[in-house]
Design a protein around this nucleic acid. Structure first.
Length: 296
DNA sequence: GTTGAGCGTT
């Protein structure tokens, strides 16, 4: 990815180029133009996390096709615009009380050939509040946040909103990039409070930001005593009766390829986990399963 | 070609 910059009537235009520089193949290259305003306020500037998150998405662009994407605190919306350009159905959001920011997001869209209301949606969405707009949102597959953890006083409001959205969309993930501003900042306890879990930062990412994904309510079960013939798919099939299964795994011996007779189930929701653990016993192919909370 | 306590993988 490279970037170019030019001045224009107090406006600074940045051009971000993804993919191969000298290719004529349009699918291999994408240019996004972001106008930045010399105004006070954080939302008119493209912070370092944005190109990182955008690049992360670009690397996975084929998986974005027809995905429903919501960007929170979009600002100049580089990641969301990229997702839209790669075939996702994108809604960009920023604080309802910042009309200038929302206008600017629309301008960013238009400069990239995306008509707001037609090719892309721009809405006001305030973190931590449950106003009409959050209920009017359709289903979402991916929630994006670029550098939205910049002020600890609003961390909980962000996570309340994210938690609500992930509860409504159990298959969805929240992907964000952040800039480390203080070693003291921590969202660990808030994640627990709002039943969120976070996987390790992607190995692919490096400073200054890191992309990290959240999933709602990861509740992991260890499943023992599995019949040797039960596969990951069958395990998932059985436990899906209790709720949406986020992941299912049967562990196989590396050398023999045979099942080791145990596996793991992760539910997307607390309900699924509760339904499964409340059942006094589980059987699969006539065998009594050993179902217990996973150790780690 | 086996087995029946055990907490892995991307």
């Amino acid at each position: 990815m490279t970037r170019f910059q030019m001045e224009n009537n107090g406006e600074q235009i940045k051009k971000f180029v993804f993919g191969k520089q000298n290719t004529t193949e349009p699918a291999e290259k994408l240019e996004i133009v972001i106008p930045e305003l010399l105004l006070p306020g954080y939302s008119f500037y493209t912070w370092p996390s944005a190109p990182i998150l955008a690049w992360f998405l670009w690397e996975r662009r084929l998986s974005l096709i027809n995905k429903r994407v919501l960007e929170l605190g979009a600002g100049t919306a580089l990641p969301g615009i990229l997702a839209a350009k790669c075939g996702a159905h994108v809604t960009l959001s920023d604080c309802t009380t910042l009309p200038k920011t929302l206008q600017h997001i629309q301008r960013c869209c238009r400069l990239n050939g995306l008509a707001p209301g037609k090719d892309i949606e721009v809405i006001g969405l305030t973190w931590g509040l449950f106003l009409d707009q959050i209920f009017q949102l359709g289903p979402v597959d991916l929630i994006l946040g670029s550098d939205i953890f910049y002020d600890p006083s609003v961390f909980e409001e962000i996570l309340v909103t994210v938690s609500f959205l992930l509860e409504a969309n159990p298959q969805a993930k929240f992907l964000f990039a952040y800039q480390e501003r203080s070693a003291d900042w921590c969202i660990e306890t808030l994640l627990k409070k709002w039943n969120l879990s976070c996987n390790k930062p992607s190995q692919a990412m490096s400073s200054p930001g890191a992309a990290t994904a959240f999933a709602r309510g990861v509740q992991k079960l260890f499943i023992g005593n599995l019949p040797w013939t039960v596969s990951t798919k069958e395990l998932q099939g059985y436990f899906s009766k209790f709720g949406h299964v986020q992941s299912s795994n049967v562990i196989y011996d590396k050398t023999t390829g045979l099942s080791r007779g145990y596996g793991f189930i992760v539910f997307s929701t607390r309900d699924g986990y509760a339904n499964a653990t409340n059942k006094p016993y589980h059987t699969l192919e006539g065998r009594l399963l050993d179902v217990q909370p996973a150790a780690s």
